[in-house]
Design a protein around this nucleic acid. Structure first.
Lengths: 244, 244
DNA sequence: GCGATATGTTCACAGTGTTCACATCGACTT
DNA sequence: AAGTCGATGTGAACACTGTGAACATATCGC
């Protein structure tokens, strides 16, 4: 922060506006982030927005990008806990394998069984990561529906209703997490390269669709525990569908 | 229609407004159906809306219900063609089975094979119906994105941002088509009752999610043929996931 | 035929995004 | 060190929106 004195100039109005928009969107969704409302929240004049953003839409996009960052953070956190749990199981199983191996050492047992079970364990880890992507996305949507609504908007690349060209320069972070997890699955042997191809779209469709249904669709207001269980069901179903 | 004369009273302004809204929404989406714009289209004064609808939102909901009907129509049409194709295959296969059966009649062949293959054929029919539900939904979304955006809105049951109670009185027709198709699958032995339980949500999530992604998401503007292929992939993946 | 009622209109108001001329500050030049 | 200039915030205005109240007119029941 360059200065804390309240002068005519604000110091860093742009981020202040985005923060205000974030706060408003958290409870009111995308409709709550308007030019006048945001400037009111920031204690500034409405027209000041146009010194930092071309348009109302540009302001919304900036807020949406911030919400998207929050989504990505929540996802990596969820992935971390799920992978940690899985790797704890892996460690337990590995020590168990070692124990059994040392017990059976006197006999001439082949180490093939150990390596194949190790493969199964790394597979489990890769699947846990993929699970984390989906569940992190869903949990964020349920926990912060306003931000979630915002985070979607940026995926929409039409600037003003034009011919809608695909964005290829800047892939959103949440989507990258999914791509990486899928690549990890083929590296771990969970998915064949053929199964991997375009697999991001079935995954994203199922997870995003559930989040949308639970957030603005017929499942709105349902019991959170039931929603979480349904979300797990959706994630397991689409993962099973990919491997079939 | 009570009268076609153009008098001070409009005859049936309510449906005229809904039709105008439908026409506007077709190209402009939900944002295009505003009180003033709709009345302009219908050649009538803005405040006349409030003789037929409580609110701007009520007008939008009425238009959305109409769009939902179009969606249901498109789905039953798609289901019909897919089921017809499948049943043609079924007939061909059945006649083939008969032929083979009559050829093998001289030998003492057991009819078990015929009945089990007949089972497989009815299964294929049930799956074709399920496929039709998903592909009909997706095709409609791709063909009429404006109407599709509208059709979703009605699934959102909040009247004014209240505590969002679940609608149980009037289940939308498109959703009923899915439920029936799933029940048909368990009747045909494709799905066990345990697999059937809550299966509507993974299905709806995947299909709706893909439609949303292809309509307002990162796949907007992609090659229609490629989108159709991806849609088929999504439908197959989620069906496989349910049966796994 | 006549009154009651349903339906459409006009006017007004609050709120929105947006623009433009103006005010003010910080920084760079000479 | 003074002065200029670009960057940033302000205030008033415009066009537009949804909405309500008072008014006008056509249709229906008696």
């Amino acid at each position: 922060m360059p200065q804390t004195t309240r002068s005519y100039h604000h110091g860093d109005l742009r981020v202040a506006l985005v923060d205000a928009g974030l706060e408003l969107a958290r409870v009111g969704g995308v409709d709550a982030v308007g030019v006048r409302e945001v400037t009111r929240q920031a204690g500034v004049s409405p027209a000041s927005v146009y010194r930092h953003f071309d348009d109302h839409r540009a302001l919304v996009v900036a807020v949406a990008l911030a919400a998207q960052d929050r989504l990505a953070e929540a996802m990596v956190e969820r992935i971390g806990t799920l992978v940690d749990e899985a790797s704890a199981l892996v460690d337990d199983a590995a020590s168990l394998v070692d124990e059994i191996g040392s017990l059976l050492e006197e006999e001439g047992t082949s180490p093939d069984g150990a390596t194949s079970s190790a493969d199964a364990l790394t597979s489990e880890l890769a699947v846990a990561r993929l699970r984390g992507v989906g569940l992190g996305y869903i949990d964020f949507a349920l926990a912060e529906p306003g931000w979630f609504e915002l985070a979607l908007l940026t995926f929409d690349p039409r600037p003003g209703g034009g011919p809608a060209v695909m964005v290829d320069s800047e892939v959103p972070a949440p989507f990258l997490l999914l791509l990486d997890a899928l690549d990890g699955c083929v590296a771990a042997g969970v998915l064949t390269p053929q199964q991997r191809e375009h697999a991001e779209w079935p995954c994203w469709s199922a997870v995003h669709g559930f989040a949308d249904i639970a957030t603005r669709g017929p499942l709105v207001g349902q019991d959170p525990a039931a929603l979480a269980a349904l979300g797990r069901r959706v994630v397991e179903a689409i993962i099973a569908g990919l491997r079939a």
